[in-house]
Nucleic acid binder design. Structure first.
Lengths: 156, 156
DNA sequence: AGAATATCTGACCTTCTTTGACTAAGCGCA
DNA sequence: TGCGCTTAGTCAAAGAAGGTCAGATATTCT
């Protein structure tokens, strides 16, 4: 079996017992599996992505850590759909507005959240001197990032 | 847990009970936590700056002290200051994080709002191919737009 | 077999924390 | 006034994580 698969399983086992959230030390894990620390990043970036239902947070420096958060199934499905089908790598303001309204009506987001997200995508928010055609691309990224954040909480 | 975090908490606990203002002895504190005295300065300069809502006063020599004062401002004044002066047309991620954290600690924003706003400013959210120096400019606009949105409700 | 894809490693980078040597400022007393 | 404690401040270097990326290897697909 490949090392990556072993590490993946190991992490998933840790989460099974614990909660939906674990913290790990990159160097310790690498030490434990006698591999390069960057191998851990490889595993995380290929098997613990939002599409797989996970979110990663980390901190450097003394006392640093990597936190792996598992989304609940429903949130995972929704995020998968939103990121891949609905948003992709570009979304215009009007579509984003419609999407946010739907999410709020469906109760996936509070109205406040939806409005706050919308405010981050308006022309004023993005009134920087870059080509217009790049703005919908920015909207997509910003919206993704915010939806992932929300997925950890309300979307459940 | 990091020593710096422990010291930060310790100081905040002292303030919670007491009032808006406490006085501490650098050497005693360092002694108490078995660390270099300059560690105390590190904590103060990374966690008790005006951006964090505190100011520091101190005196050397016999009977010296360090005074930590929590600033209190009316919400409108704070928001006004942030929007017009502090954020201006550019703000880096770290500063934004600090400001959002302060707003949430003060109860001007919920923690969820602060985190949602933060997620719209991360490198992933802004990972578009534009010059780095323009990103802080974008952060400022996006953050302002979101704060205005929140302010219109909470503080209207 | 050859091309495409997936895995691993190592060198180098960035961020955050901790320590210690040296510096500066009040205070009290000769 | 000047000297010597008693404090606090500064800054650079060391330490402690984690991140990135290109290239070497290994697997899988056609």
């Amino acid at each position: 079996m490949r090392l990556s698969d072993t590490i993946e399983e190991f992490i998933k086992t840790m989460m099974a017992q614990d909660e939906q959230e674990i913290e790990l030390k990159r160097n310790e894990l690498a030490e434990y599996f006698s591999c390069a620390p960057s191998q851990i990043n490889y595993v995380l970036s290929t098997r613990f992505t939002p599409d797989h239902g996970y979110i990663i947070e980390s901190r450097r420096g003394g006392g640093g850590y990597i936190r792996v958060i598992r989304l609940r199934q429903k949130a995972e499905d929704l995020i998968h759909y939103l990121l891949n089908e609905r948003i992709g790598d570009s979304i215009d303001l009007k579509s984003a507005e419609i999407l946010l309204r739907q999410l709020s009506e469906r109760g996936e987001l509070t109205r406040g959240q939806a409005e706050l997200m919308y405010s981050a995508l308006t022309p004023q928010a993005l009134s920087v001197p870059i080509p217009e055609n790049m703005k919908d691309n920015m909207r997509a990224r910003i919206l993704r990032s915010m939806l992932l954040n929300a997925a950890r909480k309300t979307m459940a």
